[in-house]
Design a protein around this nucleic acid. Sequence first.
DNA 1: TACATAGTGTTATATTATAACAATTTAAAT
DNA 2: ATTTAAATTGTTATAATATAACACTATGTA
Lengths: 127, 127
Amino acid sequence: MHTLSKNQQIIFDLIDKSPEPMKAYAILFNVQKKGIKAPLQVYRALDKLVEIGKIHKIESRNAFIACQNSSCQVSKATAFSICEICEKVTEISSASLSKYLTNFKDKDGMKYSKYNLEFFGLCKKCR
Amino acid sequence: MHTLSKNQQIIFDLIDKSPEPMKAYAILFNVQKKGIKAPLQVYRALDKLVEIGKIHKIESRNAFIACQNSSCQVSKATAFSICEICEKVTEISSASLSKYLTNFKDKDGMKYSKYNLEFFGLCKKCR
DNA sequence: TACATAGTGTTATATTATAACAATTTAAAT
DNA sequence: ATTTAAATTGTTATAATATAACACTATGTA
Ligand SMILES: [Zn+2]
Ligand SMILES: [Zn+2]
Ligand SMILES: [Zn+2]
Ligand SMILES: [Zn+2]
């Protein structure tokens, strides 16, 4: 188990409370009152939190979301659905999907244990 | 069929010749001798080329690659493998993968016709 | 022609992310 | 307990990625 440092905990708590993915400078703005003043302090905490699987980066949005899948602690095998209207992001936790992807073989017979999948569409509310 | 504008053609030709994904400012540097001087000119052409499916953005790398899959002309359903050492990127064109993903239903029974999948690992040469 | 749509050129600026260096804290190892 | 290594922090500066706003030009179509 991993105990978070002060900055890591502050930033994780903020992201974890947020109903939507947060961008790095929005995080910075929000934690300035807690003494975190510089972008680098935010990015360092983000890097570590991603590395240990507590948060994930939504690559197409340059934004960060808390892991919604308790089993994902170090995993780099992630899947999300993203609403193109309201930008709601949901982490997909599907055993059959992850099984399919980790077993997928490319033309050369190569398998991949790390992947990131982003689905785009409209969420329930926006349809 | 779509006929590319001057800037779009210049930038597409450059990306299409490149053996690896190109970043926007590397593109800019390379096309300055052809009269394209400003980032915005590059980004506008990139946006259009992505929109019509001639190129794809590798989101985790902020880089652009020509479509290696002649059937992808407007599609937003893309999959790539990325070598974590040499950064070689290959577009995956697998009927079974695309079928699996377009038919995938999330917890709410929702399907997605748009997705982007990036696999990470080591290419043949780097293993 | 007249009109709409797409593309261009340009300057300025916003957003996202890292380099480099010094100091401090934490956790382990002797 | 002391030494050592690893991780974290604080700070300033800067690099890399991307868009806003405005004026103008080309292209296709009615
Ligand atoms: Zn997760
Ligand atoms: Zn929505
Ligand atoms: Zn393609
Ligand atoms: Zn490689």
